[in-house]
Design a protein around this nucleic acid. Structure first.
Lengths: 210, 210
DNA sequence: ACTATAAACGGACTTCGGTCCGGTTAGTTG
DNA sequence: CAACTAACCGGACCGAAGTCCGTTTATAGT
C-alpha cells in the first residue's frame, strides 16, 4: 500500500480549483530543474525512452526526489504536459468562438473535436508516453475530468436527449489518444476522415426523438 | 528490437483463421502446465497480482519458458482468457438469435452490448489485468479485431450511413473494459443505465439522413 | 540568533518484466 | 539405431520503476 506523501501531494494540478502546494524553496528549485531536464531529455531521445533515473541524474538530484515530487512516471509526464494542456483548456473554456464561449453549444461541440485532435497531434509522443498503464487510473486523470465536464455541459446546453454522462464518455472515447494514433498511423486514415467522423458523431448525439 | 521466436510464435491465437503451431510434445505439456498454474494462481490471489516468475515456479518450469511460449505478461493473460473469449465469439457469430445470426442486423447490434457487458463483467479482473500497457498494441489484439469486424459488418448490414469503420470504433470504445469498470465501480452507475446508454448509442448510429 | 520540527534529500534496495545463451532433447532421416 | 538439427529448456542476468530510511535543511516561533 502506498500512502500519500506527508505534504507535497505529488502534483494533482490541472483541476480548475487548485491550491498551490507552497513548496519549500529548495523543493521548488528542484522541481523546476527536474521539469527542465525531463523536457530536454524527452526532446532529445523521445518521451517513450525517458527513464526516471536519467531525469534525476540529469537534474543532479536523487531518484527519490523525482518520485516524491511527481509520484510516478505518468505523473512526471503529465506534469510535463501540464503547460500545453492548460493552453488547450483556456482555448475551449475562455478562448475565441466557436471553440470558446460565444457560439451556440452545438457549434462548440463540433469545434472541439478537430481542436483536440490537432492539439494532441502536436504533442503525440508525450501524450502517448503519459498514458496510465493502469486502466482504472486512466479515467481519473484531472485533464480527462475537465474535458468530460466540458463536453457534458455543452451536450446538456445543446439540448440533447441522450444521457449526457454517457454521451460525454462516448465522445471522449472517440478522441482517445491511443485510438487516434492507431487510426492515423497504423490504419493510415487521413486526419480529415477522423474529423468528419467526429462531426457525424456529434450530430448523432444531438438528433432528437429518434 | 525484439525478433519473433524461431518457430513457436508466442500465441497469436483467436484470429479466425488459425494455423495450429504444432508444438513439440514437451512444449505442449509445459504450455498446459503453465496455463493451469496461472489459472490457479489468478483465482487464488487475483489476476492483478500474478507474476510471471510465480507462474513459472508453480508450473515447475524455467522463467524463460513462460516468455518463449506467451511472449509477455499480457500474452499469458490473453491466453488464459482465450477460452472464455472463444465462447463469447461463438455466441455472437454462430449462437442463437438475436445475438447470433438469424435476427436483423439492428437487433443483433442492440443485443451485442449487453452480452459483451455481462461477459466482461463475469471475468472483470482477468480482462483488466490483460490490458496492454502500450496504447498502440491495445488496438491490435486479435479479440478486438474480431469484435470490430463483427460490428462493422452489422452496421453496414443495418444500412447505416455513418462511416462504418469509425462507428465500429466508437461502439467498441463504449464497451472498453477499463471504461465500463470505471463507470460501474468508481462512478457507481447501475448496469442498467450503461446498457440503456448502449441502446441509445446504437440507435443513433442507425438514424438516417440527420 | 537559537531551536525545534516538518519537509526534503539521496541513493541503496527490492521487485518484476524481459533477454540471453550454453546445454538438453524430441523428432526426423538414412 | 545412430546421428543430426531445430526447437526447447532453465536460470543467471539486466534495466527500470518504485520503496525505504537515515541524514540534512528550510522555515517558523521564541
Amino acid at each position: 500500500m502506498t500512502s500519500p506523501p506527508p505534504h507535497g501531494r505529488t502534483e494533482l494540478s490541472l483541476t480548475p480549483v487548485e491550491a498551490p502546494p507552497q513548496l519549500r524553496a529548495d523543493a521548488a528549485r528542484n522541481r523546476a530543474r527536474l521539469l527542465e531536464a525531463a523536457a530536454r531529455l524527452a526532446a532529445e531521445q523521445g518521451a517513450a525512452n525517458l527513464t526516471m533515473e536519467a531525469v534525476a541524474c540529469a537534474a543532479q538530484v536523487g531518484k527519490g526526489t523525482v518520485f516524491r515530487r511527481f509520484g510516478d512516471r505518468p505523473g512526471l509526464l503529465l506534469a510535463l504536459l501540464d503547460h500545453q494542456e492548460q493552453r488547450f483548456q483556456e482555448a475551449f473554456m475562455s478562448g475565441p468562438a466557436p471553440l470558446g464561449p460565444g457560439a451556440p453549444a452545438g457549434e462548440r461541440l463540433h469545434a472541439f473535436g478537430p481542436a483536440a485532435l490537432r492539439h494532441e497531434d502536436a504533442h503525440r509522443d508525450l501524450y502517448l508516453a503519459a498514458v496510465q498503464p493502469d486502466p482504472a487510473r486512466r479515467h481519473t486523470v484531472p485533464a480527462r475530468l475537465v474535458r468530460h465536464t466540458h463536453l457534458a455541459v455543452l451536450l446538456r446546453e445543446a439540448g440533447t436527449d441522450a444521457d449526457v454522462e454517457l454521451a460525454a464518455q462516448t465522445l471522449l472515447g472517440y478522441l482517445d489518444t491511443g485510438l487516434v494514433h492507431h487510426l492515423l498511423t497504423v490504419r493510415g486514415l487521413p486526419l480529415a476522415r477522423v474529423e468528419a467522423g467526429w462531426h457525424d458523431l456529434v450530430s448523432r448525439m444531438l438528433v432528437r426523438g429518434h
